[in-house]
Nucleic acid binder design. Structure first.
Length: 803
RNA sequence: GCCGCCGUGGCGAAAUUGGUAUACGCGUAGGACUUAGAAUCCUAUGAGGCAACUUGUGAGGGUUCGAUUCCCUCCGGCGGCACCA
C-alpha cells in the first residue's frame, strides 16, 4: 500500500516545470545571493548514476533550504558534452558524436527532472554548443595574447590507442586515465598553457578556500613548490657549463659526481670519444624503455660515465659527469649534483660505480646514506653549522662566486592543451604559409566544428580535422593559411562553465560584469573527488587569469567544496556492468519514488564517504514516508489536530528544527533526518497534534523530499508553494526547559542517574552534591570510604573519587 | 617510500568536540492483527551472566576524577603522489 508517490511526483514535477517555479532572476539583488553548484555530468549513454544522484540531491536540498531562508538562489545544471567519453562512445556505436550526445543529454534531462531537482532549466548549457564554446575560444585567444598559450615541440604523453596526447594529470601509472591504455613519450609539437605562471597564486589561494583538507593537500603536492638553490658546474677544459637544482646545498662539499638526464641538451657535446659507444648504447636502451619501466622505483639506478669532468664551484674539486635515467629531464634543470653520503639514490649509484663518498654531516653512513639534519664537517666555512645554516652559508658563498643562487622549483608543469581528436573545441589559430601564427579574429568566433563523417582518430596522431581540406584552408588578408587542426581537451569547457550560468545567453561577453561581480564565487560546489587535481586545478587557473584580465573580481571560483563519496555496489565493489552490481536510479524511482531515493541517499551516511549500496535502503526510506503520509492524511491523526501542544513534544520539535537548520547548512543530512525520524515517532504517539508543528515538519522535510512535502503543505490549506515559504524558527526556551539528567560516577564508573533542574545556581549544586550521596547505589560504593573529591560539571555529570 | 584520511554492534552509522558509548535506520528474532503477509503495529537486539554486575569504540601504553575524542608506539584499510634531487 502506502502513498501514491507516482501521481504525486508526476503532478508536482509538471507543476514546477510548467510554471518555471525555479527560475532565478539574477538581476534581483534585493535578497542575499546563494550560488550552489553541481559538477555537471558527462552525458554518457549509461545515463544518470546513483552516485550523481547523491551529490545532486545534496545540492538540491541545500538550494531548497536557502530559498526557504530567503536567499536568491542560483542552482543550474548543464552538460560537459565535449571530450573523450562521448566520442569514444560514439565511435563504438558507429554514430555521430553530436547526434549521440544530444540523445544522451535528452535522457539525462529527463532523469534529472524526475528526481525533482530544482534547477533553473532556462540556464542549461552544453559545452559543445557553439554559442558556449565561442567563449571558450575567446578565453583561449586572451591567453594567447598574454603569452600564456604557446606552441612547443616537446616530449609528450602520447596514447596510441586513443590516438591523442594527454596532459600529465590524465596519465596514471603510465596509462591513460580514460580507458587505461598504455601511454608513451613522443616528441610532438603541441599547444601548451602556461599554468606554471600561476603556480604561486594557485598555491596561496588554497589558504583562502574552505575545501576538504585532502584536496587542498593534493593540489599543494601537485604544484610541488620546493625551496633550494641553483649551482653552476663548469666543464673542465671547456667553456661549457650546466646548472643543477638542489634542495640540499648544505651538502655541496660532499658532491663527488654529477648526473645529467639522458635527454639533457649537453649530453652530445660532453661525451668523449672513448665513452661514445657506451653512451650511445645506454641512450638507445633508455629510449626503448616505456615510461612505466623508467619510473619503476625498485629497479636499479643505471647510468654511464660521459668521460667529461666538471668542477664543484665550492671547492674546485674535479667530479665525474654521468648520464642516468633516474634523473628527470622535466624537473629542475634536468641535472643533479650527487652526494652519495647524504642521498640514498646517489648512495646506491656510487656503491655500484665505485665512486668516492665524502661525509659532510656527522653521521653513520656505513649501511645507508644519512639524509637528516646534523653538524656539518669537511665543509670548510660551513663546519659546525646545521642543515639550514649551511644551506644559507653555502648558497651565499655561491652568489659571491657568481656560481649559484637561491631558486624555487615546482613540480607543476605547463598544461598540454591540444588533442588529436575530433570532438572538442577547435583551437582558433591559423598557421600562415610564411610560418607565422595568426589568431582567428574575435569577430569570427565561434570557429565552429565542421560536421565530419570520418572523424576517427588516426594511429599516427594526425588530427581528424586535417582531413577536411575545405575547412582547413583559409585566406587571411590575402595570404594563404591552414587552420590549427588540434582541438582543445575535455577540461577546456569545464574550466569556466560555472561563470556562464550566471548570464548564459549573453552573446556580447562572457557575462554582464554586474552579474559576475554579484554572483561569483560559487558558494557551495559539490562533485567527485576524482577531479581534485584536474578540473579543480584548471578551473582555478582560468579563474585567476580572468581575474587578472578584469573579467572576474573574485580570485577563487569555489568558496566551499564538498566531494560526494563513491557509491559502491552492495557487495562493496565498485559498481560495474561486468560485476552485475549496478543500481540505476530509474529502477529505484519506479519502485519507491524519487523522494524515497533522495531520502535514502541523504540518510545513509555522510555524503563524503564511499558507501556500499544497501538494496533494502530505499525500501526503508519509503516505509518512513508512508508513516509520514499517514500523519497528514489518516483520519486518526487528522482528528488529533489542534492548536494546543504538549511540552515534551514541543521540546523535540524545537530541537529538531534547530538541529536540521544547523546540519543541512553543512550537508550533514544524515543526522538531521535521524532527528526528524525521532520527531515523527513522537508525533505518531502524541495525543494532540499542533497544526504549527505539522506545518513546520513539512517545511524541514521539504529540502529532502520535496514532492511529498509539497503535498502536505497543500493539504494543510496553503496556496503558496512550500519552496518559497519561510523556514521554521525554533524557540530556544522550549529546548532548554527540560530538567537534565546527571550521570553520577564513582571512581570513573557510572553508578546512578539523577534528574535535576537545568542551569542550577552554585548553592543549588551544593545541595545536589548532598542529595547524590544519599542515593542507594551511590551509598553502596561510597560508604566506609574516604571521599577525596567531587567534581560537578553543570548539567552533565558528578564525579566522585573515593579511597 | 612520502603525503592525507580513517578504524565504534550482523550492516550503514550517532555521540552536544574530554562527560551516561551504540541515537536514527537496515537486518534478525519473538509476538499481535490476519485465510494469508514481502503490509502495519508492539517487544527484544554489543558480548558474558538468572541477577546485582562485569566487560566493551583495531592493539598496547600514557595524560585525566573521567578518553571513541588528546599524546606516543604498533597493526589494518582507503585515497593521492611516486626516482621531484
Amino acid at each position: 500500500m502506502g502513498y501514491d508517490f507516482k501521481n504525486i511526483e508526476e503532478k508536482w514535477q509538471k507543476y514546477w516545470e510548467d510554471n518555471k517555479v525555479y527560475k532565478t532572476d539574477c538581476y534581483d539583488f534585493s535578497k542575499p545571493k546563494f550560488y550552489v553548484l553541481d559538477m555537471f555530468p558527462y552525458p554518457s549513454a549509461a545515463g544518470l548514476h546513483v552516485g550523481h544522484v547523491e551529490g545532486y540531491t545534496a545540492t538540491d536540498a541545500l538550494a531548497r533550504l536557502k530559498r526557504m531562508q530567503g536567499f536568491n538562489v542560483l542552482h543550474p545544471i548543464g552538460y560537459d558534452a565535449f571530450g573523450l567519453p562521448a566520442e569514444q562512445f560514439a565511435i563504438k556505436n558507429n554514430a555521430s558524436p553530436s547526434i549521440y550526445t544530444e540523445k544522451n543529454i535528452n535522457n539525462f534531462r529527463c532523469q534529472l527532472k524526475r528526481m525533482g531537482f530544482s534547477y533553473d532549466w532556462d540556464r542549461e548549457i552544453k559545452t559543445c554548443d557553439p554559442s558556449y564554446y565561442k567563449w571558450t575560444q575567446y578565453i583561449f585567444l586572451k591567453l594567447y595574447e598574454k603569452g600564456l598559450a604557446y606552441e612547443d615541440e616537446r616530449l609528450v604523453n602520447y596514447c596510441p590507442a586513443l590516438g591523442t596526447v594527454l596532459a600529465n594529470e590524465e596519465v596514471i601509472d603510465g596509462r591513460s586515465e580514460r580507458g587505461n591504455y598504455p601511454v608513451e613519450r613522443r616528441p610532438m609539437k603541441q599547444w601548451c598553457l602556461k599554468i606554471t605562471a600561476y603556480a604561486d597564486k594557485l598555491l596561496s589561494g588554497l589558504d583562502e578556500v574552505s575545501w576538504p583538507t585532502s584536496t587542498v593537500q593534493m593540489q599543494k603536492n601537485w604544484i610541488g613548490k620546493s625551496y633550494g638553490s641553483i649551482v653552476t658546474f663548469n666543464i673542465v677544459d671547456s667553456d661549457l657549463s650546466f646548472d643543477v637544482f638542489t634542495t640540499r646545498a648544505d651538502t655541496l662539499f660532499g658532491c663527488t659526481y654529477c648526473v645529467l638526464a639522458p635527454e639533457h641538451p649537453l649530453v652530445k657535446q660532453l661525451v668523449t670519444p672513448e665513452q661514445k659507444e657506451k653512451v650511445s648504447k645506454y641512450l638507445a636502451e633508455v629510449e626503448r624503455k616505456s615510461d612505466l619501466e623508467r619510473t619503476d622505483l625498485n629497479k636499479e639506478k643505471t647510468g654511464v660515465f660521459l668521460g667529461a669532468y666538471a668542477i664543484n664551484p665550492i671547492n674546485g674539486k674535479k667530479v665525474k659527469v654521468y648520464i642516468g635515467d633516474y634523473v628527470l629531464a622535466t624537473y629542475g634543470t634536468g641535472a643533479v649534483m650527487a652526494v652519495p653520503s647524504h642521498d640514498q639514490r646517489d648512495y646506491e649509484f656510487a656503491k655500484k660505480h665505485n665512486i668516492e663518498m665524502i661525509k659532510v654531516i656527522e653521521s653513520d653512513i656505513s649501511k645507508e646514506a644519512y639524509e637528516g639534519d646534523g653538524v656539518h664537517i669537511n665543509s670548510d666555512f660551513a663546519d659546525g653549522l646545521n642543515n639550514e645554516e649551511a644551506k644559507k652559508a653555502i648558497t651565499d658563498k655561491l652568489i659571491e662566486l657568481k656560481k649559484g643562487n637561491y631558486k624555487i622549483s615546482y613540480k607543476l608543469r605547463d598544461w598540454l592543451f591540444s588533442r588529436q581528436r575530433y570532438w572538442g573545441e577547435p583551437i582558433p589559430m591559423i598557421h600562415m604559409e610564411d610560418g607565422s601564427l595568426k589568431p582567428v579574429a574575435y569577430s569570427d568566433l565561434p570557429l565552429t566544428l565542421p560536421d565530419l563523417k570520418d572523424y576517427q582518430p588516426t594511429y599516427d596522431g594526425k588530427p581528424p580535422l586535417s582531413k577536411d581540406k575545405e575547412w582547413c584552408e583559409v585566406i587571411v588578408d590575402g595570404k594563404k593559411g591552414l587552420r590549427e587542426t588540434n582541438t582543445m581537451p575535455q577540461w577546456a569547457g569545464s574550466s569556466w562553465y560555472y561563470a556562464r550560468y550566471i548570464d548564459p545567453h549573453n552573446d556580447k561577453e562572457i557575462g554582464d560584469k554586474k552579474l559576475l561581480d554579484h554572483w561569483l564565487p560559487v558558494d557551495v560546489y559539490v562533485g567527485g573527488a576524482e577531479h581534485a587535481v584536474l578540473h579543480l586545478l584548471y578551473a582555478r587557473f582560468w579563474h585567476k587569469f580572468l581575474h587578472d584580465e578584469g573579467v572576474f573580481s573574485s580570485d577563487e571560483p569555489f568558496k566551499k567544496l564538498y566531494h560526494q563519496g563513491l557509491i559502491l555496489g552492495s557487495d562493496g565493489q565498485k559498481m560495474s556492468k561486468s560485476l552485475g552490481n549496478t543500481v540505476s536510479p530509474d529502477q529505484v524511482v519506479n519502485e519507491y519514488g524519487a523522494d524515497a531515493l533522495r531520502l535514502y541517499e541523504l540518510f545513509k551516511g555522510p555524503i563524503d564517504q564511499p558507501l556500499p549500496w544497501n538494496n533494502d535502503g530505499p525500501k526503508g526510506a519509503k516505509r518512513f514516508l508512508d508513516k509520514l503520509y499517514r500523519l497528514y492524511f489518516d483520519e486518526e491523526y487528522i482528528n488529533k489536530r489542534t492548536t494546543e501542544s504538549e511540552e515534551s513534544l514541543e521540546y523535540v520539535y524545537n530541537y529538531t528544527v534547530k538541529k536540521c537548520t544547523a546540519d543541512y547548512e553543512i550537508l550533514h543530512f544524515n543526522t538531521g533526518i535521524a532527528q526528524i525520524m525521532v520527531l515523527v515517532n513522537e508525533m505518531l504517539k502524541a495525543e494532540k497534534l499542533p497544526l504549527y508543528m505539522l506545518e513546520g515538519l513539512a517545511k524541514i522535510i521539504a529540502p529532502i523530499t520535496p514532492f511529498i512535502a509539497s503535498e502536505f503543505y497543500q493539504a494543510l490549506g496553503h496556496n503558496d508553494l512550500i519552496d518559497f515559504s519561510t523556514w521554521p524558527t525554533y524557540d530556544e526556551e522550549k529546548i532548554s526547559f527540560k530538567p537534565v539528567t546527571y550521570a553520577i560516577q564513582v571512581n570513573g564508573k557510572l553508578r546512578a542517574k539523577y534528574d535535576f533542574k537545568k542551569d542550577a545556581t552554585s548553592e543549588e549544586l551544593e545541595e545536589l552534591k548532598k542529595i547524590v550521596l544519599t542515593l542507594d547505589n551511590v551509598k553502596t560504593y561510597v560508604e566506609g570510604k574516604e571521599i577525596i573529591k567531587m567534581i560537578v560539571v553543570p548539567n552533565k555529570i558528578i564525579s566522585i573519587v573515593v579511597k
